[in-house]
Computed example of a mutant assay.
Amino acid sequence: MTTPEATPRGEAALLGPAEVRTLAAEFDIRPTKQLGQNFVHDGNTVRKIVAVSGVTRDDVVLEVGPGLGSLTLALLDVVERVVAVEIDPKLATRLPTTVAERAPELSGRLDVVLEDAMRVLPSQVPAEPTALVANLPYNVAVPVLLHLFAAFPSLRTALVMVQAEVADRLAASPGGKIYGVPSVKANFFGEVRRAGSVGRHVFWPEPKIESGLVRIDRYPTPPWPIDEEHRRRVFAVVDAAFAQRRKTLRAALATWAGSPAEAERRLVAAGIEPSARGEVLDAADFVRLAAVDPIG
């Protein structure tokens, strides 16, 4: 799938290594492992992220964990509006000032929401976001990603930077060793693919792990119901299937179904071999399985 080129809209002065350290020192902002904070300080990297995301002038972007504003400035050059969700009060307070100083003609396009991305809801956001573009906190990247896709049906695409290993798992195909819960749950919402790699040297502080880009394009017409109740039913089956991934589905799903015999009945009804293991099923298989009514 090809993505449109990002078209610059302004003259934002992006943050470099010196500016990132100066801002952090000025406001006594110390990156914390607990919040998964690693600040990007390379202009080429943030421009690459914006370009690969495919966002355009019509997009309202939801950015999670904007930090000191490196990616925010690059996004404001291109899109109509950025809604930045930040959990750190110091960072949330400083971000509008940073944008006003470095790109005053773009500052009116920024909204900052002081909230935990794991809990943020549409009612707290001033505009309907169409795209998620973010350097996600690595310690909670998958839960945040899944929450946002479930809570914001207006999101059509996502381009997120996560730990390289997590990126591989999210984009994995059925049958591989790294295919698992994140792979299936992300694919429940849309098509998932690896979209690039990011080196350690573009961050401050420099992490000990490699980073990767993942793109998700929500299905234009959902192939199955996406309401909260249905999603919970499907995700419960997925969790059960991979909780004991070495076991056959008949055994792994025994507790979920009530017994091995009932698990087998439901698997057969869904057209799935009871002796198979969870890693060979795709999202559509789990959706069919979750839809089988229990006896009685």
Rank of each mutant, 00 (worst) to 15 (best):
R232C: 03
T255M: 04
T22S: 10
A141H: 12
F149T: 02
T97N: 14
K247N: 03
A117W: 02
A270D: 04
G258P: 14
R109V: 02
T255A: 15
T45D: 06
I29G: 00
P31L: 10
V113N: 05
P8E: 06
V85I: 13
E80V: 00
E86S: 06
K90S: 11
E264M: 05
A164G: 07
D59W: 02
G190M: 08
R194V: 00
V202P: 07
D217F: 04
V82N: 09
P220V: 07
K33D: 02
G67S: 08
P223S: 10
T7W: 01
E273Y: 04
E229Q: 12
D293Y: 00
D59T: 13
E115Y: 00
L159Y: 07
F27A: 14
A100S: 15
L71Q: 10
L148Q: 04
E80P: 00
D42G: 11
Q34A: 15
N44C: 01
L15K: 08
H147N: 02
P126G: 08
F188Y: 15
D77M: 00
R109F: 12
V292F: 03
F27R: 15
A241K: 11
D116W: 00
A25H: 12
R277N: 11
V234N: 14
V78E: 01
V292Q: 14
R47S: 04
V79F: 06
V238Y: 10
V112E: 03
T22V: 01
G16F: 07
R277S: 02
V52M: 01
F189C: 06
A251H: 14
I49V: 14
G199E: 15
E228F: 01
G69C: 05
R246I: 04
I29K: 02
L73V: 05
P66T: 08
V125S: 07
G199R: 15
E228Q: 12
V140I: 15
R288Q: 10
V238P: 12
R250T: 12
P222A: 15
T221Q: 13
A84K: 06
E206I: 10
G175K: 08
K177C: 00
A117T: 03
E19W: 00
D217H: 09
I295C: 05
S154I: 10
F242P: 05
E228H: 09
R250F: 06
A283F: 05
T130V: 04
E26P: 02
V82T: 07
T2S: 15
A151Y: 10
R9L: 12
Q37L: 12
V140W: 08
